[in-house]
Design a binder for these strands. Sequence first.
DNA 1: CTCTTTTACTTCAGATTTCAACTATATCTG
DNA 2: CAGATATAGTTGAAATCTGAAGTAAAAGAG
Lengths: 165, 165
Amino acid sequence: MTETTDTRWLDADEQETWRAFLWTSRLLNEALDRQLQRDSGMPHAYYMILAMLSESPGRARTMTELAEIVYSSPSRLSHAVNRLEEAGWVRRTKHGADRRTTIAELTDAGYAALAEAAPGHVAEVRRHLFDPLTRDRMLEFRETLHALLAVLDPDREAPCARELG
Amino acid sequence: MTETTDTRWLDADEQETWRAFLWTSRLLNEALDRQLQRDSGMPHAYYMILAMLSESPGRARTMTELAEIVYSSPSRLSHAVNRLEEAGWVRRTKHGADRRTTIAELTDAGYAALAEAAPGHVAEVRRHLFDPLTRDRMLEFRETLHALLAVLDPDREAPCARELG
DNA sequence: CTCTTTTACTTCAGATTTCAACTATATCTG
DNA sequence: CAGATATAGTTGAAATCTGAAGTAAAAGAG
C-alpha cells in the first residue's frame, strides 16, 4: 500500500508506443463495429461469437468454453447469447450428462447471417490491418503480439509453442 | 452494393495475427480498467481524459479539442465529463469569445487524483506492454502501429512526419 | 440585415458491459 | 450419505457507450 518505490515513468518512445497502441486498437475496433452494425446489424463482439461457434465441432460449445474462446466474462456472454437467441441465430440446449452446463449452438439462420456478414467484415479487417503492412512486418507484428499475450494470458496454450520440447 | 467480387479470405498467418491483435488489445484494456477501477475508482477512459487535460496548456481544453485528443465521440466525452465534474475532478467554463464552446479544466482535486493514480497505472502498462518486449521490438512495434494509424486516421498529423519535406 | 448552414455541445433513448449476487448441480470429505 | 465446497450459468442493477435528435451560437449567402 505505502508505495515508497519511485515510479519508473515512461520515456518518450514508450509513451508514443503506448498511445499508438491504444489509439490503433480503439480506432480499429470502432471501424469494425461501425461496419458490422451498419451492414449486418450486429456488434463485432456478437459476430465473433457466431464466428467461433461456426468453427466449433457441431457448431456448438458450452457457455464456459465459448466464453474462454472469445475472451468474454460469463456474464457478458450470457447477455450476448440472450440477444443472439432472440435474433434466432443461436440456440441453447442442456447438456445431458452434466445438467449445469448449457450448450450454445449456431442455428442455420445464424450461420447464414454469419456467411452474409463475413465478406464485408473481412474486407474491413484487410483494409485496416493488412493492406498497410508488408508481409514481413505483419509476421513480426504477430510475434510481438504473442510475446504480449504470453504475459497477459499465461494459462492459454501458446499458439506458437513449437519451441517447447 | 451487389458485391460480386470474390472475398479474399484471411490466410492462416493473417488470421492468427488478427486474433492476436484483438485478444491483446482486449486483455490489455481489461487489465488496465480493472487496475484503475480497483485502485483509483475510475475507468481507463476517464483516467485518459484527466491525463490529457493535465498535459494541456492551463490544464484546460475545449470539449471538441479534448474529444479529438482522446479519440472520443463528443457524446461520450460529454457523458464522461459529467461524471468527472460530479467527482470534482473537472470544471466546465464557458469560453468568452465564442459562447458555443465549453472549456473543460482539470481541478486541483482532479490533478491530485491523477497524480495518485498514475504510478499504479504506469506500472501496469509497463508490466504488460514493455517488460515483455526488448527495446528494438518495442520500436519496431511502434513503427507498425504508426503505419496502421496512417490509414485508420489519415487526417491526424502524423507523429513521425519527419520525412515529409 | 435576414436566412441558411455550420459548429459546438448536450440530451435522450436504447444497447452493451460490469460487478455483485443468486440458483442449481456436481464433487469432495469424513 | 450429510455437509461443505466448487462449478456452470443466469440475473439485476448500475455504469458506460452509441447514434440520433435537439439546442444554441457563430459564420456565410444574398
